[in-house]
């Protein structure tokens, strides 16, 4: 049984960098965690208090909420290998 994955992506408004990060995250989600991945997107310009609670400094920031422990990846997620390694979520029993 694969683990449930909860990811939150913090972006700052609709700009090319945000779009790129969202796009990259969708691709990774569909390719590797289809069906067991919950992705939330938080716009820090609209919800600065959420950024405050999560102590987000940089955008985009991806936070792996589940499984614990928490992991953070800063940047537009353009380097897929780095993102997968940092998320280190097991896929079919293997840890990427």
């Amino acid at each position: 049984m694969d683990e449930q994955v909860v990811l939150t992506l913090y972006v700052a408004g609709a700009n090319p960098r945000s779009e790129r990060a969202i796009q990259n995250l969708r691709q990774i989600g569909e390719a590797f965690f289809a069906g067991r991945c919950l992705i939330q997107i938080v716009d820090v310009l609209r919800r600065p208090e959420a950024a405050e609670v999560a102590r987000i400094m940089a955008t985009p920031t991806l936070v792996r909420e589940q499984p614990q422990p928490e992991r953070r990846i800063i940047g537009d997620l353009s380097d897929q290998a780095t993102v997968l390694k940092a998320l280190s979520i097991s896929i079919g029993g293997d840890v990427l």
Binding site: Y10, A12, G13, R17, R20, A21, N24, V44, L45, P48, A51, E52, R55, I56, M57, A58, T59, P60, T61, P69, E70, R71, R72, I73, I74, G75, D76, L77, S78, D79, T82, V83, K85, A86
Partner: peptide, 24 residues
Amino acid sequence: VDASRGSEEAVFSGEYDLDALIAR
């Protein structure tokens, strides 16, 4: 505005800015 370093180290992948901090 607590921007002190958390316990966890972040990983970097691609470009970023500090818009979140500015927004906070």
